[in-house]
């Protein structure tokens, strides 16, 4: 536990130093505040931008930051030094994951300021689940990649699919049909309803399946490559 906290603390200290990742964390929450407060179009659904950006946030920030943090630490060989100092790989991964999750939850809290308070109690737990799945997906990429360059180029297409497809699905039915298999699209549908009772079994199954796929992929990659 102490080692997990050390990793968490180390990442926390890096928050304001690592600008590229900080932008990831801050961009959508800020964008949400701006759009919700400045743009008012008639007939626009309630909290349209909050719901739209929430899903994009899930598909981008935790994914890219998890991949980038792990890949950088591998590339710079600082991870190896940590392992030498008896930090176990799982302690490192949990510490890093917990950090990303915490920062993203702060971002989500900022995004939710425009929502009515009962909707906020729905929004935040759903976001929390989305972040966890994305962090696992990002960790897969981080473990798979030898260096940051490789991580960036693998993250790109995955991020595009997870965060942009649900947005594009609004405009195109064919995309919408294909998009249903992704957890981000399901989360998008769930946010449209904003109620626990409206969540369909199909959504739950798809989200769980997504989580399972990434968890298995993570286990396989981790077995094969570890954190080397």
């Amino acid at each position: 536990m102490q080692k997990i906290l050390v990793i968490f603390k180390k990442q926390l200290r890096d928050t304001f130093k690592n600008k590229t990742i900080l932008i990831q964390f801050v961009m959508f929450p800020v964008l949400t505040l701006i759009m919700e407060n400045c743009i008012k179009i008639n007939d626009m659904p309630e909290n349209f931008f909050t719901k739209l950006f929430a899903v994009m946030y899930i598909g981008m920030a935790p994914l890219t930051s998890a991949a980038a943090i792990i890949a950088e630490e591998k590339e710079k060989n600082t991870l190896r030094v940590l392992m030498h100092a008896n930090v176990r790989p799982w302690q490192y991964l949990i510490g890093t994951g917990a950090y990303i999750w915490t920062i993203c939850m702060i971002g989500a809290a900022v995004m939710s300021t425009g929502l009515p308070s009962e909707e906020r109690l729905f929004f935040l737990p759903v976001m929390a689940i989305g972040f966890v799945i994305s962090i696992i997906a990002g960790a897969c990429i981080g473990i798979f990649s030898k260096n940051q360059m490789m991580a960036t180029s693998v993250v790109m297409p995955v991020m595009m699919i997870l965060s942009f497809v649900p947005m594009l699905a609004m405009f195109n039915d064919i995309i919408k049909k294909g998009a249903v298999v992704f957890y981000t699209q399901q989360l998008r549908n769930i946010f449209d309803e904003m109620s626990w009772s409206a969540i369909g079994t199909k959504s739950i199954v798809i989200i769980c399946a997504n989580a399972l796929v990434f968890a298995v992929l993570f286990a396989v990659l981790y077995r094969k490559k570890g954190l080397e």
């Binding site: 080692k3 180390k10 130093k17 690592n18 710079k76 600082t78 940590l82």
Partner: peptide, 20 residues
């Protein structure tokens, strides 16, 4: 080839391992 945390200061680099 053992790296440092490039964005951290010297003291911060050591602080991470003092914590560990």
């Amino acid at each position: 080839r053992f790296g440092l945390y490039e964005r951290f200061t010297c003291a911060e680099n050591l602080a991470v391992f003092a914590d560990v």
